[in-house]
Simulated assay, not measured.
Amino acid sequence: MSFNANLDTLYRQVIMDHYKNPRNKGSLEDSITIDMNNPTCGDRIHLTLNIENGVVKDAKFDGEGCSISMASASMMTQAIKGQEVDTALKLSKIFSDMMQGKDYDDSIDLGDIEALAGVSKFPARIKCATLSWKAMEKGVSQE
């Protein structure tokens, strides 16, 4: 088995782990609430954010959709918790560039998010992967 095939298998496993065992699933009280959906495929997300003094103190999501959409939401909430809003937005820009197949800033460790890089090869799935990130951008702009 080639290195790339092993990497693809690992990435699929990471995505399925986040889908089957989502991190930060649920809802927060007294929070910024964002509801978004992707009418093309039926993915929907309910994102709640607690932001204090320019820092994302907590983030939770609920919703339904494909494995890529839900795994991306799980990874996104993990990545932004404890980050300054500016850093969360920078992560979103990096993720967007990665989804578009562009060169992206690799100065920040993306962790599990890197597993979604292959989605860029499937244009119809990019909206699935970016839905939660768009919700987060909308949410932090309400702060």
Rank of each mutant, 00 (worst) to 15 (best):
I34E: 12
K60Q: 13
C66G: 08
A124P: 03
N24D: 01
A124D: 13
R23F: 00
I108T: 13
E29D: 14
N50F: 03
R23P: 00
M98H: 10
S96P: 01
M136N: 02
I126W: 08
M76Y: 05
S107V: 05
S69Q: 08
Q83S: 13
L47W: 05
N6M: 13
E84P: 10
N38Y: 06
Q100V: 06
F95S: 08
F122T: 02
G101H: 05
T87I: 15
H46N: 13
M70Q: 15
S69F: 03
I126T: 07
N50V: 07
D112I: 00
D103Q: 12
K60F: 04
I68C: 03
G65F: 02
T130K: 12
H18F: 06
R23S: 02
K121D: 14
T33N: 12
T9S: 14
A79V: 00
E114M: 13
A124N: 13
S107C: 07
D103C: 01
K20N: 15
H46I: 02
P39N: 04
V56G: 12
K57I: 09
L131Q: 09
K134C: 03
C41R: 03
I34N: 10
R12Q: 15
F3I: 14
C128G: 01
T9A: 15
W133M: 08
T33Y: 06
I113H: 01
D35E: 15
K25Y: 09
P39I: 02
M16A: 08
P123C: 02
S72I: 04
T130W: 02
K134D: 14
M1H: 14
I32K: 11
M1V: 10
T48I: 05
I80T: 09
P22G: 05
M98A: 13
N37P: 05
L49A: 12
V119C: 01
N38W: 07
N37I: 01
Y104I: 05
A79M: 11
E137M: 10
P123S: 06
F122H: 05
G101L: 04
P39C: 05
I32H: 09
L131A: 06
Q142C: 04
M76A: 11
D106W: 04
G65Y: 01
C66D: 09
Y19R: 01
K121T: 04
I15F: 03
I15Y: 07
D86L: 08
E137S: 11
R12H: 11
L49I: 07
E52T: 10
D86H: 11
K20H: 14
G118I: 00
Y11S: 02
A88C: 10
